[in-house]
Amino acid sequence: MQLGFLVDLHLCMGCKGCEIACKVENEVPLSTWRLRVKYVDVGMFPETKRTFTPLRCNHCENAPCERICPVSALHYLENGIVNIDKERCIGCAGCVMACPYGAIYIDPETQTADKCTYCAHRIASSMMPACVVACPVEANIFGDLEDPTSNISQYIQDNQGDVQVRKPEKGTDPHHFYVGGGNLQLNPLASKRVEGYSLFNKLTTKMPLGGHH
């Protein structure tokens, strides 16, 4: 079994339900996110369009975070999930530096690395990840990539030619796919980050966001 995720960006409406469900399920501290939805506005008024992209750990088959972790705190589960043992983590932040997707952060409460685990604890109890359950439009599709009859395998089959991963040139073989995504949604360099535009770019929290301050 190799579990994977697919987000149909045609369906996502940016409600952030998945983001909140993840926060609640995994008790993710303030100022940090295992899953987030990024809004990118395209075009000039009145010809404008808004895109929504949920971003989480890609659970790569060739995971740089697993390779760089000096104590195997980041490790593969048999079902393909890249899991984290927070009791073992020494907080070197090598994984934060290695992840090409910016999916790992330092938990300000435990001072250890943390990230999306595809809700491994729920999977172990035969439940779906919290974000999948919360999505009102079923834009999150989760399942076994090795099972040709699973929802995710069939979705990939049905949308051949429109299935993409982020930064394929990194050779990480992500187990996280997008349908209906383009350069704007998947390439962070394809959009500007202008101060004053993003709602949360003036954080006043004293809690570290993963780096040193």
Partner: peptide
């Protein structure tokens, strides 16, 4: 692409600062 699309991130979380200082 940027010049043509005027793509701007309008809502996102705060990103980590300098991780290795």
């Amino acid at each position: 692409t940027l010049a043509a699309t005027h793509a701007v991130v309008t809502l996102d979380v705060g990103l980590p600062g300098i991780v290795w200082p």
